[in-house]
Amino acid sequence: MSTCTLRRIRPWLGTYVHIDVTAPNAHCAETALQAAFSEIATIHQAMSFHAPGSEVSHLNREAHLHPVVVSAHTLAVLVASRRFAQQSGGIFDPTIAPTLVQHGLLPCPVAADADGRASWEDIEISTDGQVRFLRPLWIDLGGIAKGYAVDCAIDALQHAGAQNACVNAGGDLRHFSRQGERHPLAIRHPADASLSVPLGHIANQAVASSGNFLLGRRGHQTGASPIVHPHHGVAQSRPRSVTVIANTCCEADALTKIVSLLGQDASPLLARLSASAAIIEAPDTLQASPGFWSALGHDSAEGPPRHA
């Protein structure tokens, strides 16, 4: 059977979104690509912290004054954020935006000043989908929305009849294959973005990475990291990266923040979500959680065979 494979890349979600798709014919592949990019564009526009017209900006301006109705996408990401916040004991917190603004990692929004005591617990979601903040606060869904958008794009590609697809939004990626084909996975080295380290293969899984490199700063001289501890507010600045493999990209994306802050203490949550992780630290160490190497198709729990 002849198939058509297309690849496109467009700037969304503050990064480059790559989509590879294989479909039974060119029309199907093109339709699937358009559907996937359309989902990503919708999610970008709803959840941008930067755009004054986004639903997130609307929430940050008004949700502490009165309940605000949001779209199904934003609601789904808010619900997921609250769930991760609860599951991580508040380590994942979508209300840390004031710290990111303070460090110059996000622009200052046009909104009432955030209450320093506010946390994820001040986000109230009613059963009819209305959102209310119990205190003035700034939410930023940047720690999870990209993964969610990748999941929605994969759903759209599948729905449009794609046979194989991979969506990669600047390192948050998910692979789909009806035939269960495997896809090679590599990660960037935390100290040198020009080097990538091959790790193995994934099939119908999602991967996300977080790190404080590649943000225009140099190796050991990195400045503030976008990963902020909600209790200490201290941004880590070591050249370190975390890679998480999970069933959905939304989970993988959120878990990278949790593993970055908790390290190996994130093991119970990883296990509960059938996810695995690796922490890579410069110059040369990779610590893999139980299940990380098997998720990448290696038989040995120690990873691929290697030389001394």
Partner: peptide
């Protein structure tokens, strides 16, 4: 469960694989 995290060096991973570091 922390005990069962494994540690490897990236250099050894690179040595293992023919596609190595790019």
């Amino acid at each position: 469960s922390c005990d069962s995290w494994s540690t490897v060096s990236l250099v050894s991973l690179a040595g293992a694989s023919l596609s190595v570091l790019c």
